[in-house]
């Protein structure tokens, strides 16, 4: 594919997929651009003023390392979605520098934006599924419109649907699925190409707590493959339990950035689920 130019370096643990790709250990330094660090995301003094004069973001500075799992929290209108939109270059920073994998986004030409976006998976609160297409076709669609062959689609789609626990729902339409299942489809679509960066804007905003845990567990599993995951959320209880890094925003400013040293990166998905659900042991893990 023509994605080489803005490729975000990724790290994959060994044995993760039979894709035959070169396997890099977690934390490998990026090969691209001679950037200063292996930061996947770097915001330096970024301000975003919307046309109406609303402040979306106000001199925000932070960085996200490769393989990190980061929460963005803050009240409504604090700028979480603005960060996401800046990252996919849907909007441009008014001032400051947004770097992704060492590339200044301001320097990516309009024509190159689609190729850049293929390196980023995005998950939204409202799923953004196509109602007139089945689960399988919703995921296949993302590959189809980015120029993948039928063969690639036949290989990749069943794999990702297995990973997201949707193997039995291939031929269902979105309105025949629960909210949690719909969100899994949208995660499957976002992750089918195994992008090195996954952005989730309130992925559990419409879901009940138990379903939310399932979704967070899935994101955690994806994170463990080496993909950097950024999650914007209102769900403080969840954030507290996850014990991952938290960046808190208020009126566009970063008011807290806790690189929570509390967690061990080696926690298994199963241990993670158990901890998230509190003391309720013996829950079957769906995988």
């Amino acid at each position: 594919m023509k994605t080489t130019q803005h490729k975000i370096p990724t790290a994959r643990p060994s044995g993760q997929r039979p894709s035959g790709a070169v396997v890099k250990p977690v934390g490998a330094r990026p090969v691209i651009g001679g950037a200063s660090s292996d930061r996947v995301i770097e915001f330096r003094g970024v301000t975003k003023l919307y046309d109406g004069g609303d402040i979306g973001l106000d001199h925000a500075t932070f960085g996200v390392e490769q393989g990190e799992f980061v929460f963005l929290v803050g009240h409504t209108g604090s700028g979480k979605s603005t960060i996401m939109r800046l990252l996919i270059k849907e909007v441009q920073a008014s001032s400051g520098v947004v770097n992704v994998a060492g590339h200044d986004l301001a320097e990516i030409k309009r024509k190159k934006v689609p190729y850049y976006r293929r390196n980023i998976g995005v998950v939204w609160q409202d799923f953004k599924l196509l109602p007139n297409r089945t689960v399988y076709n919703n995921v296949a669609y993302a590959l189809l419109v980015t120029g993948h062959s039928r063969k690639q689609i036949r290989e990749k789609v069943p794999d990702i649907l297995r990973l997201t626990g949707l193997s039995t729902k291939l031929h269902n339409y979105p309105d025949q699925l629960s909210g949690g299942e719909q969100q899994r489809v949208s995660i499957a679509r976002a992750f089918v190409n195994h992008p090195p960066l996954l952005l989730c804007d309130e992925p559990t905003g419409n879901l009940d707590p138990e379903t939310s845990i399932g979704i967070m567990q899935l994101l955690y599993r994806i994170n463990k493959t080496g993909t950097t995951v950024v999650v914007a959320t209102h769900d403080h209880a969840m954030v507290d339990k996850m014990r991952r890094r938290v960046i808190e925003l208020s009126a566009g400013r970063i008011i807290r950035d806790e690189a929570a040293g509390l967690y061990s990166r080696d926690e298994s998905t199963r241990e993670f689920a158990v901890r998230m659900r509190g003391a309720r042991l013996g829950q079957p893990e769906d995988s």
Binding site: I88, K111, P114, Y115, Y116, R118, K128, V145, G147
Partner: peptide, 17 residues
């Protein structure tokens, strides 16, 4: 418009759309 939105998000090129 939904299809177009999704296409843009997953990185379909303008001409493809």
């Amino acid at each position: 418009r939904r299809e177009i939105e999704v296409m843009k998000l997953v990185g379909a090129t303008d001409s493809f759309i």
